[in-house]
Design a protein around this nucleic acid. Structure first.
Lengths: 213, 213, 213, 213
DNA sequence: GGTTAACCGAGACGGTACGTCCGGTCTTAAG
DNA sequence: CTTAAGACCGGACGTACCGTCTCGGTTAACC
């Protein structure tokens, strides 16, 4: 939820003059998601979002530099709902979180927005950075959390080489996120329980081999 | 490479009037790729492509309904370069084709265009169909070819259940394509030989488990 | 009815090859007038006229250089209907022909077309020439005929100075044509019998003064 | 000079938001006249006028509904220069104002524009109304002023019947305006002093007869 | 009775302008 | 200094015609 004047995390540092409306931020992001549902990314316009939010266009541009940044923030909030459930086994935990991920990608505001900003980010490094910070890296916590939980259950051995370990986390993340996105958006087939079961088998079956240096 | 009036595969059935210029098609698709490289998808405009190709805007609209369809055809040609190399083993074959795939995704005309049209396709069924026909399904041949070659080498058992087999092909395709795309475009890390080796280990290691019903 | 290859008035000078369809000419001019009625000059398009006439666009351009020339020919035929009636007195004759002229200008194909080509002719000398030859000068016969008839009746004296006489004919023509057109198209009031009676009084009352050198 | 939102004559009633630029109006009308001179009505384009005026196309369309309305306003300003000179006699006054009128019609921006909008007005009642209000009726003041001045000089009797009088004013206006326009644009001969002298003789000679009921 | 040359329909072609929409910026008055 | 409102410049959109061209095929007059 970074804005043009990035959120000074600590004290608000009260500037002179009229302070910005806090309600406006929420209204704008909600309006953006609504517009994504109804229109999709390419037909979503700043003016339309502004009038949906009951706000002037200038108010948008004071907070975000453009459509891309706005959509990143609007979509990022969706992925913060992801939780790693404790279902008792690594297999079940993975299946649970993948199903949650698939459920989010089934929502039109996520489908429309996510791929569009990724596409834009191929030519805009600042945007890619923002996507990484706001969306991608924030969800790596799930992989880390899942691994440590499996280790405490004894399903996985404690990692030895930290560099090796980081590489494996990244690989898993690319495989999970990539496969679900591809299944959902490109193949346009549902990532349902059957598919998730098969996929999880593949992933867990391959893990030991991948972890070998 | 479908146009607005899809190619009647058999006899050309010479319609009355001046026939469409074949040279124009090639010039337009090349100009589109060039524009993708220089400008990216969102700043690519039909007028610009037309003038690069030395063609009138109407000539574009006579052949494609819009920017999305045009870009799909322009990008599709890139992926037809993919070949399954014969490197002697299943592992090596997979590594080879994945590296080729990664090399295509490293080209800016593919990066820019591919994700954008996928994003648009989330709200346009005809476009998704076109992407599937022109790009995705056409490359599944690689998976099929690789499997039959491995079977003839004795690396894989002949499939028994055809439905089960089709499901596995789809799964592999989603995993391979998804992981490489995610690594390349979202994580923005190179899918180099090291990564491909790790990924291939994961995939081949998990295959037996995934193939179990 | 001049065409691009202007009508060699005498012998048709039979060129080799297939001769032009005579029926097409009539159909095109009729279609032009119909289009003028329904669409007006500015929304009339060559393609539309062609399809109304059941003819290809090339056939139009083979005969006329453009829209303006075509419309001039189509409108010119309307004014050839004008006849000088013999109502027994100069006053009555003038009133009769002025009413006929007003009736033609009340038809939408004449209103729309005439002023438009005159407007265009302000920047196109060839077009002005064509208008003069096809429309304007051809109707001066009415003034000449009216005068000689009045002279034979003894209502007007025979002219003495030929130059002076020509100047008067031109003046009368400008006054009559100009006044009726202005009344009809600019003031947008009908040039009815009452108005024509008043106008004719003014004209005939002023004639002796104007004819004095 | 009416705009899309006609000038509320009284208080400006300050609407919210940025007010319209007054300078833009003048620049646009001047650019329109310049374009009429260089290109004529049919080759004048809104985009060209906009760029000449240093203004966006949207700014034109915010103020005028189309080319016709814009040209009417641009041309109307030309005719507001007309003044009734006091040359001591009715004859001389008329000759003076007719020469002025002819001088305006000799300017290419007037020739091109005036007839074109009159032609268009044959199919557009709102446009005809606009022409009447902005150009035609505004100049009838000249006829009225000339008559009252002639009456005060004793050259004309005071009018008795007001309806009769109004009809005569309209008739004179149609004759004067029509004849000068026809002489200038259709006959394409100059309305010079000789012609104006002859025409004025005709007009004044006929007036007594026309004024008789 | 074949040759031949101009005709004809259809429709694609390179252009130009259209009138609209949107992106971002700016200028107001109000808070 | 922020806000709502809305005008501003610029650029792209997709469409409509322009006048030209390139086809396959027809039609009359000459040989």
């Amino acid at each position: 939820m970074q804005s043009r004047t990035p959120g000074t995390s600590g004290t608000p540092a009260p500037r002179p003059g009229r302070p910005r409306s806090a309600a406006a931020d929420a209204a704008i992001l909600a309006a953006t998601r609504q517009a994504l549902v109804e229109l999709g990314w390419s037909k979503l316009s700043m003016g339309d979002v502004a009038s949906r939010a009951g706000v002037a266009k200038t108010t948008l541009y004071r907070r975000w530099t453009g459509k891309n940044e706005l959509v990143v923030d609007a979509v990022a909030e969706l992925f913060d709902e992801l939780r790693l459930p404790d279902r008792g086994s690594l297999t079940a935990d993975i299946e649970g979180v993948v199903l949650q991920f698939a459920a989010i990608l089934a929502r039109p505001e996520a489908r429309s927005g996510l791929m569009a900003v990724v596409a834009e980010s191929t030519r805009d490094d600042a945007l890619r950075e923002r996507i990484r910070d706001s969306i991608v890296d924030r969800q790596k916590r799930l992989v880390l959390e899942g691994r440590s939980r499996a280790q405490s259950r004894g399903e996985l051995p404690p990692e030895s080489d930290p560099a090796e370990s980081a590489r494996t986390v990244d690989l898993i993340f690319d495989v999970v996120a990539g496969a679900v996105v591809h299944r959902t958006l490109v193949s346009a087939e549902p990532a349902d329980e059957v598919w998730v079961r098969d996929f999880t088998r593949l992933l867990l079956g391959g893990l030991p081999a991948a972890a070998t240096p």
